[in-house]
């Protein structure tokens, strides 16, 4: 009974609805948003202060409290002017985009099969997928490193795409399965009657219907890969500074003991820009009633 739904459906507002959709809901949402943003606001304000100030007074001095507030962009300068930072951004994109698209593709096919095809071992494989979500990433590093060494895949982009694909795949299959399996049976059967092959049904029907869940998984996978440091360091190699991604570059700037932690204040925001852009870009796919609409259609 959101406002937009009301106008769409033309149902008249009852008093209960009017009360609930008005002030109290907005206040609760506003309060939660404020609470959730508070730590980030602290970081944002800290990022425009000199390190000595960050260490001696609270960030809220911006809003008064007697002390003068010194504004500086030096933390941002330190990150943006670092040698090789542009290259690192390019590398991060290069690592991330295929590492998001490949698992989604592979998982969508698999999830479709799990949901709508009969084949021996289906439950067994599905149980396996759930179980594999629990394998700690750290335990996979060395065995995969051994494989990569033997086929000379260490330090290549292909190697890291496949690694991220492997690590992200169980969750991708699981999430996509959860959604694809709820597609009403009638839709799938009507496609079959229309003579569509399973491949066509998949590309023409299932994929378009699954856009919301694909969009949400894409966001998560993008975030994890974008913010990953360990997998990149292990599989992209430590010998090749040309292959540094943003996170490894930042870690380098901060220093081995974290001495220059203040660059992280600015660094966190700079690295956040791309994933947040992706979030905004994909948000329009979380639309209401896709499934319902297609039933009618």
């Amino acid at each position: 009974m959101s406002v937009s739904l009301q106008t769409e459906s033309g149902v008249q507002r009852s008093t209960v609805q009017a009360v609930l959709s008005a002030a109290p809901v907005r206040i609760v949402v506003l309060l939660l948003c404020f609470l959730w943003s508070l730590p980030t606001i602290g970081l944002l304000i800290s990022s425009i202060r000199p390190a000595t100030d960050i260490n001696s007074t609270g960030w809220w001095t911006l809003f008064g409290g007697g002390q003068p507030f010194n504004f500086t962009l030096q933390n941002y300068e330190a990150v943006l002017s670092a040698e090789g930072m542009a290259n690192a951004f390019l590398n991060s994109l290069l690592v991330t985009i295929p590492s998001v698209v490949i698992p989604i593709t592979v998982a969508a096919f698999a999830a479709y099969a799990f949901a709508w095809m009969e084949f021996p071992g289906r439950d067994f494989f599905f149980a396996g997928v759930v179980m594999l979500m629990g394998v700690p990433l750290h335990m996979a590093l060395i065995p995969i490193m051994r494989i990569y060494t033997s086929i000379d895949l260490n330090g290549t982009f292909l190697g890291i795409w496949l690694a991220h694909t492997g690590f992200g795949l169980p969750l991708a299959i699981y999430l996509l399965y959860g959604y694809i399996s709820t597609i009403p049976k009638e839709i799938m059967e009507s496609a079959h009657i229309d003579g569509a092959s399973p491949f066509t049904a998949f590309t023409q029907l299932v994929l378009p219907l699954s856009v919301p869940v694909i969009a949400s998984f894409a966001i998560f996978q993008f975030l994890w890969v974008w913010n990953d440091l360990l997998v990149a360091l292990v599989f992209l190699g430590t010998d090749n500074p040309d292959a540094f991604i943003v996170t490894s570059k930042l870690k380098e700037l901060v220093g081995s003991k974290g001495q220059n932690w203040e660059v992280l204040t600015a660094g966190a925001f700079i690295t956040m820009i791309v994933p947040l852009f992706i979030f905004f870009a994909l948000q329009r796919y979380f639309v209401r009633g896709m499934m319902a609409g297609s039933v009618k259609g």
């Binding site: 592979v106 998982a107 096919f109 698999a110 396996g128 996979a140 492997g166 690590f167 169980p170």
Partner: peptide, 16 residues
């Protein structure tokens, strides 16, 4: 449909 996923999973997670 599931084959490629299974192959990737076996290499990257089952074997480890």
């Amino acid at each position: 449909f599931v084959g490629p996923a299974l192959v990737v999973l076996v290499i990257y997670l089952v074997y480890p």
